[in-house]
Write a protein that binds this DNA or RNA. Structure first.
Lengths: 144, 144
DNA sequence: ATTTTTGTAACCATTACGGTTACATACTAA
DNA sequence: TTAGTATGTAACCGTAATGGTTACAAAAAT
């Protein structure tokens, strides 16, 4: 995964939309929960929109809502929607082609990275936003 | 994983040391194979040294060598030696504690991230530097 | 002694990221 | 139909991380 907060914030966004499931939620309200700027939220919602995880409604009493049941949205769905496929530093990795090692290591590394990436995504796929929301609720009621 | 090339270059380094198993290899030679500056290589070798994956020898005819058999060095060993534990953007993620979602989402996310991270590392553990070197050799001989 | 090489510190340029302002567009509600 | 609200996006800024580079002290071999 990357060093940015896109995935973390996106999970927060969808958990919040689950929490406020019945209404259209404007980006300003989500931003207050995440404690950041509404534009940051809308940028991420743009990616989630393209992935059909949320719907948007412009204008007064508009806002965002889940596009499907929270049981059908996995953390992998969110990850793929907002985080570009990592290049594992291969961008800045152009070894010497004249060296027997340098000439072939890139392809071998790419294969190893791809497998590691799939393993990580498979683990993310095991958790849904509904479960994340359930854990939220469990903590809240458990405290009383 | 991160957006840097530390892991990729480090695997290259250890594959190169396996390829030149019998001699002490100076950082300049490795740098020529990776096509970068020797200091970049020595920085990474410093981390690999601390993790006891390589040994160093100063002075004339000095250089670096594997500290153990390449069959006993996994990609996970290398990953853990050179890449700091990723924070998955949690550094820049401080949601509003007064919101029921914001107050608890961090802990839940941390748990999900940890599981995904372990899954990825487990996959990396399945490959050794000896295998990476073997793939190099297979390609070279296969081409003839 | 001279040469070679590690080990580190310091600095630079580039890039990526989050945050912010601004504003056009679109929709609701009255 | 008009006033108000919210999305969608472009542009810009400051900060932080990264790789590359120069410089140089310490250590070891020949």
């Amino acid at each position: 995964m990357a060093g940015n907060s896109r995935f973390a914030v996106s999970v927060h966004i969808l958990a919040y939309l689950t929490y406020r499931r019945d209404v259209a939620v404007p980006s300003a309200e989500i931003a207050a929960s995440v404690d950041t700027n509404p534009v940051v939220i809308r940028r991420l919602l743009g990616a989630l929109l393209k992935a059909r995880l949320v719907t948007a409604q412009k204008g007064a009493s508009g806002g965002f809502a889940l596009a499907k049941a929270p049981e059908k949205i996995s953390l992998r769905d969110i990850y793929r929607a907002v985080d570009p496929t990592p290049d594992y530093g291969m961008r800045h990795f152009a070894p010497n082609d004249e060296c027997p090692v340098g000439a072939r290591i890139s392809a071998i590394l790419a294969g190893a990275f791809a497998k590691a990436q799939l393993a990580m995504e498979a683990e993310l796929a095991r958790t849904t936003i509904a479960e994340v929301h359930g854990q939220l609720h469990a903590v809240c009621t458990g405290k009383r």
